[in-house]
Design a protein around this nucleic acid. Structure first.
Lengths: 145, 145
DNA sequence: TTCAATTCCTACCTATTTAGTGGGAAATGA
DNA sequence: TCATTTCCCACTAAATAGGTAGGAATTGAA
């Protein structure tokens, strides 16, 4: 019932990009240092986020990464799905794979309904929270200090 | 963001015991066949559930397992915690381990608040659903057929 | 008393995933 | 031209997942 470091680091990096949104590309090195994660490991995660269209990159000197869209248009759920795959507590809920939603026995379908309820409660939080929400939380924390 | 087969099989087995609650001990073999899971693998899971006090066992002929308490008193969260450990999306939320709840930087604490929200939505579903709820769902399905 | 059924316990195993590291090619602004 | 930076590929050590195998101990019933 955990997100791996892939999801955790990825969200941290995207949060970093959201806080610094509009300031041009941010170097991976800077993000890695600020968020205290391995640079070359994060590089792989950023590659996936780039391929998924969540960030844009710029190579060469003064290059780096920036959000492809406004923080308000990026949900945490999107980030997690790119880095961790579908948000599903058990496979039989996963309609994106071929494992399908059919369990067979009615007993097991009772459980399926339960897992679905858990899934819904998770996606509700993940999909309804955007980077903008987190950015604003961070601003409020700054002010409160 | 998944439960492993440990949690999934464990919940299935406990659900099976709930449906057959009050009929004396059920043999592991029976549960394994009904729930279509590996018997020797399930055996290990039942050992952990027994050590955690969630089931009682009876050895020898006509032996087996039964719930230690009424289905209404067993939440799915309890089962999951025994078999999967603490329900926490990220380590910094886990007060049961020594990793503690302190992150350091305010940026990361913004994320901590978010993960906490996710955790709360998960535990709400897991701890508020009991085996009795599932048993009744199963009965309703039977009747509807 | 014997025996089949059943839990209990320990050890082992294979494949996959996790969490990285390292090296070098390609692009780019100064 | 050159330092900077992304891009790409290969590799790896450790942990976790998902089991299997074998035998000892217990127990109800014939």
């Amino acid at each position: 019932m955990r997100v791996s470091t892939r999801g955790e680091y990825g969200v941290r990096a995207m949060f970093d990009l959201a806080v610094n949104f509009g300031q041009g590309p941010i170097a991976l090195k800077t993000i890695a240092e600020r968020q205290m994660v391995s640079e070359s490991y994060l590089e792989q995660l950023m590659a996936e986020l780039r391929k998924a269209g969540l960030v844009h990159s710029k190579r060469g000197a003064q290059g780096g990464y920036e959000l492809a869209d406004k923080p308000a248009n990026v949900s945490i759920g999107e980030i997690i799905r790119v880095l961790e795959g579908p948000i599903t507590p058990v496979d039989c809920l996963d309609t994106e794979t071929e494992r399908g939603p059919y369990c067979g026995t009615p007993e097991r379908c009772v459980l399926r309904n339960f897992w679905k309820e858990l899934q819904d409660s998770m996606t509700k939080v993940l999909d309804n929270t955007t980077l903008e929400d987190l950015r604003q939380d961070a601003c409020r924390l700054e002010v409160a200090e």
